[in-house]
Design a protein around this nucleic acid. Structure first.
Lengths: 207, 207
DNA sequence: GATCGTTTTGCAGTCACTGCAACTTTGCAG
DNA sequence: CTGCAAAGTTGCAGTGACTGCAAAACGATC
């Protein structure tokens, strides 16, 4: 009874993890991030505090719902593009695909997260602090496609640019979510692609 | 006895702040960041723990030595450039000037910080989390020069790129400090300026 | 040297987070 | 179904970052 890669155990784990993530986001959106204790979150998800910390290394992580498989997934996508796609495009399209998928699966959570991140923008930055490992993975994938040595700046810089683009996009999206988050990230990455040396032309509509 | 803008009180405050910063960096480099308690830091600087927190909001902040005047200083520099200098160049040159100054004043501290950041790269990311206010300041300055409305992405994106460039540069500098940190930041910002869409040519020497 | 504003300090308290050692649940085999 | 091993959960005791508050020490001013 363990063939489909999803045993009872695994299912329970997924449910618990999801419950903790939801509880964190919901309560934080409701009362403000630092007026919610881990104790309350654990109670809401019907597990002990200790169990909370078995799933997430910190309250921050639970709020963002850091998915340890996201990094590998994106890296895989990057490498899967045919060789005629440039490293930059492979990276951009892989990131956008991940974001689109994520929003399709958990749009409601992101709408709540938005509320929290509007109050505490620093949490978004902190969220990226714990993902150094994933960043390394992505940088390696980009470097491999670009045929660059480990030590070259380009892959690292591109990945860092991705984080920056995501940060900016979420900030804008929080102010006005009439545009899809994915489009905002795409726009930001587009600007990084063509270069910031010149101020982009200023359109009337929108920002 | 209070004309030269530096009273006894002010001098003591500066000394205490510097002592706490030095103690934090020194001890963290010596034993590892999380094997040093605030209690020990405070003892080393000959003040109470409570006083530590009067100067720095967190241990992280003390390690980086977050200077609340750095943001305003850079913003001022940006606005001081003659109008024929592009917003991008004004930003880049202002940031580089600040870094150069900082290294001239506290190179020894940065050499120790380097050791700590090599062990815990996340601290560098976290350091930027608390500087949202300064980022806003810089973005406004850039926006003003570029004649863009408050809501435009460009200034925000440029400032975010600056953080990313700094992060990458410090990481590389930590691995090999034979190149000046300022030059590495300059290089990274240069790439952001010309755009990341195409992989830069790979030189043999260096990275 | 009395007074006023600022800084330092101690103290009590809250909360995130950890290691450890029991305890419960699940998966599997006999 | 039973017993066993592995995986997951829990409570507990402890550490350490950080906060608010009120008292004490200190520096500037007259």
């Amino acid at each position: 009874m363990n063939q489909p890669g999803e045993s009872l155990r695994d299912r329970k784990k997924r449910r618990t993890r999801a419950a903790l993530e939801r509880a964190t986001v919901r309560l934080a959106a409701e009362r403000g991030y630092d007026h919610v204790t881990v104790e309350e979150i654990a109670a809401e998800a019907d597990v002990s505090v200790r169990t909370f910390f078995n799933y997430f290394a910190s309250k921050d992580e639970a709020l963002i719902g850091a998915d340890p498989e996201a990094g590998p997934r994106i890296a895989e996508r990057i490498l899967a593009f045919p060789p005629e796609v440039s490293p930059f495009d492979a990276y951009r399209r892989s990131v956008l695909a991940e974001i689109t998928d994520e929003l399709d699966n958990a749009r409601d959570l992101w709408l709540l997260r938005k509320e929290v991140l509007m109050q505490r923008p620093d949490l978004l930055v902190r969220a990226f602090a714990n993902s150094a490992e994933s960043e390394q993975l992505l940088a390696n994938a980009v470097g491999q496609r670009a045929g660059l040595p480990e030590s070259h700046v380009y892959p690292r810089l591109l990945v860092a640019a991705g984080s920056a683009a995501f940060r900016c996009a979420v900030t804008r999206w929080a102010l006005d979510d009439s545009v899809a988050l994915g489009d905002l990230v795409g726009e930001a990455l587009g600007l990084f692609g063509t270069g910031l040396a010149h101020v982009p032309h200023h359109h009337e509509g929108g920002s």
